[in-house]
Design a binder for these strands. Structure first.
Lengths: 161, 161
DNA sequence: CTAGTTGCAAAGTTTTTGCAACGTT
DNA sequence: AACGTTGCAAAAACTTTGCAACTAG
């Protein structure tokens, strides 16, 4: 829900981690921090291109990998097609993903976290990643007839690259 | 945890649904019902080949699709590489997936189901699929040094195909 | 016999790798 | 200046499609 406030934080995080801050990375970070829904690699490319026209898909993949490694971005799985990415946030640990419009409704469930922790301990399981998703249709999309699907909004004419 | 008791049930289910029971399908069903871990399409092929030497990957994909449609099989997402499949079972709705050996420890958490249901209702969200997974290392694999990874166990010399 | 099913080969997608040029620090 | 980073082209991995032959019912 917070807008793109993440952005500078992510950049700092990358820098502190020893990664260089390039226009390409800025653009990818911008795309991911300003989207409220999960984006595929291709979508990230489209979102980021306006800010960095030369950007290539390879760099998108490589940047996603780094951001994932830093715990800033997480994978999201659709019913068909896995492999979309969204900013990690505690509030968004549990997601209701709309298959139609792509929206990701957040929900924080502290009790659930506790239960998972207890279960893991009981099993002696070392947790690396947690995926909790409910896929389906959000309230709005249940009534709508056609299929919208947030398109790569034609964004500003600013260029960082 | 139950052995391959599913098998005949799945076959019946397919038949009732109007699908034909072929040796290829039997073999894929056998692989999925007798494995206690999630298998990729390729792994299913390997597991099933001993029972049906001519089996091709295309048929594996097509059979998976049908089984998914009937709600007998569900997708499972690894940290790297999504796209493995495992038998659906209520007990296994919540899974602890070992990234090392692939084991899927089941855990039924009725309370959690309730919470999800309530949350969905509150959001007006129409649930289509539910993914709850904890990826990490199971107790055994935490201590072991090398990487085993259940291999396509050389199985019986029986052939149905 | 008929319509669903199969496996091959080929086309499509998506992701990774090799590498010389480039840009951040 | 040094070394991480980039984007292209190509390779690799993974899925789907077209189609003639096959077979379960």
């Amino acid at each position: 829900m917070p807008p793109q406030e993440h952005e500078s934080g992510w950049i700092d995080r990358l820098r502190r981690h020893g990664d260089r801050i390039t226009p390409s990375r800025r653009a990818v970070v911008m795309a991911l921090t300003s989207s409220d829904r999960a984006l595929s690699a291709l979508e990230i490319l489209e979102w980021a291109r306006p800010w960095c026209p030369g950007l290539g898909i390879v760099t998108v993949y490589r940047t996603i990998e780094r951001l994932q490694h830093l715990g800033l971005v997480q994978r999201v799985h659709g019913v068909n097609s896995c492999h979309s990415y969204i900013a990690v946030s505690d509030a968004r640990r549990f997601m209701f993903l709309c298959e139609r419009c792509g929206s990701a409704d957040a929900l924080s469930m502290p009790d659930m976290e506790t239960m998972v922790g207890q279960a893991a301990t009981a099993l002696g399981f070392q947790v690396q990643a947690l995926t909790f998703q409910v896929n389906g249709l959000c309230r709005r999309c249940q009534s709508e007839p056609a299929a919208p699907m947030a398109e790569a909004t034609a964004v500003a004419d600013v260029t960082v690259c």
